[in-house]
C-alpha cells in the first residue's frame, strides 16, 4: 500500500505471522519476565561483585562464553520455529544464525535488564557493569549496557520484541546467502507484521525507525565482540581451544 515493492499480504496473514512468531519467542526466551519477578532476584552483594572482579581473566571469559552459548541455543530454537526459516537451504540457515544469533541475544537482554539500577540478569542475580571488569573489555560492556538501556526504554511488548528479533535474524543483506531473494521475502513479511503490530498497539510513528537504527548498533556490538575475542585468543589460544564451548567457537570462528 505504500507503493514500495512489498509482497501482498492480508491483515489476517500478518496477524497469524505475528501470533506464530510471538508464540515461538515466548516458548524459547530462556526466562519469562514473570518468572524472574517471582524469583525475586537480588542484585549481587559487594563481596560477590568483588569475587567476580578477582576471577582470572580467562575464567571470566569462559563463564561469559558459556552463558552466551546457552542463550544462543535458545535463539537457534526460536529461528527453527519462525515461519519459512526451515524452508531455506541449510547454507542460508547457518549464514543467518552465524551472523544474527548473537544480535538476537543482545535484543533479548533488554527483557532481563533493570533500568532502575542499570543491572542485568546474569548467573542467577542482577549484575551491574562492574561485575564484568575481569573480562578486560570495559568499552564493550559499556556498549552492551547502553544498548540494553536504550532498547528497554522503548518498552516493547513481547510480540513487538519477537517480531523485531525475527526481522533481525532474517536480514537479507548477510554475506554468503545463496537465496537472498527468499530471505528478503521472509524479512519483508516480518517487517510488515511488525509495522502492523506497532500500528495496532498505537505506537508513535518513530518507533519503527528507532528499531531500524538499532540494526546498525547491533552490528557494531557484534564486531566489537569479535575484536575482543580475537585479542583474547591471541593471548590465551589454548584456553579458547580447550575450554570454550564448541558452538561458541563454531559461531565466532575462534
Amino acid at each position: 500500500s505504500n507503493g514500495e515493492t512489498s509482497p501482498t499480504v492480508s491483515m489476517a496473514e500478518l496477524d497469524h505471522l505475528a501470533h506464530v512468531v510471538s508464540k515461538s519467542h515466548l516458548e524459547t526466551c530462556q526466562y519469562l519476565r514473570e518468572e524472574l519477578q517471582q524469583m525475586n532476584c537480588q542484585n549481587f552483594l559487594q563481596d560477590e561483585v568483588e569475587s567476580y572482579q578477582k576471577k582470572p581473566r580467562e575464567v571470566m571469559w569462559q563463564l561469559c562464553a558459556l552463558k552466551i552459548t546457552e542463550a544462543i541455543q535458545y535463539v537457534v530454537e526460536f529461528a527453527k520455529r519462525i515461519n519459512g526459516f526451515m524452508d531455506l537451504c541449510q547454507n542460508d540457515q547457518i549464514v543467518l544464525l552465524k551472523a544474527g544469533s548473537l544480535e538476537v541475544v543482545f535484543i533479548r537482554m533488554c527483557r532481563v535488564f533493570d533500568s532502575h539500577n542499570n543491572t542485568i540478569y546474569f548467573d542467577r542475580k542482577f549484575a551491574g557493569p562492574d561485575v564484568f571488569k575481569a573480562l578486560g573489555c570495559d568499552d564493550l560492556i559499556t556498549s552492551v549496557f547502553d544498548f540494553a538501556k536504550n532498547m528497554s526504554s522503548l518498552h516493547l511488548t513481547e510480540e513487538e520484541l519477537a517480531l523485531f528479533s525475527a526481522f533481525v535474524l532474517l536480514s537479507a543483506d548477510r554475506s554468503w546467502l545463496q537465496d537472498k531473494l527468499q530471505v528478503e521475502k521472509l524479512q519483508q513479511k516480518t517487517q510488515l507484521a511488525l509495522q502492523h503490530v506497532l500500528q495496532k498497539n498505537q505506537r508513535e510513528d518513530g518507533v519503527l525507525n528507532k528499531l531500524r537504527c538499532k540494526v546498525s548498533a547491533l552490528r557494531s556490538l557484534c564486531s566489537q565482540h569479535t575484536e575482543k575475542l580475537s585479542a583474547f585468543r591471541a593471548i590465551y589460544p589454548d584456553i579458547v581451544r580447550t575450554h570454550f564451548p564448541p558452538l561458541y567457537k563454531e559461531l565466532f570462528g575462534a
Binding site: 546457552e70 541455543q73 530454537e77 547457518i94 558452538l247 563454531e250
Partner: peptide
C-alpha cells in the same frame, strides 16, 4: 558441513539439547 557440525546438528534435531 564439518565446519558447522554443531549448528547442523541443532538445526536437524527436532529438539535442541537445551531444556526448553
Amino acid at each position: 558441513k564439518e565446519k558447522h557440525k554443531i549448528l547442523h546438528q541443532l538445526l536437524q534435531n527436532s529438539t535442541s539439547p537445551v531444556d526448553l
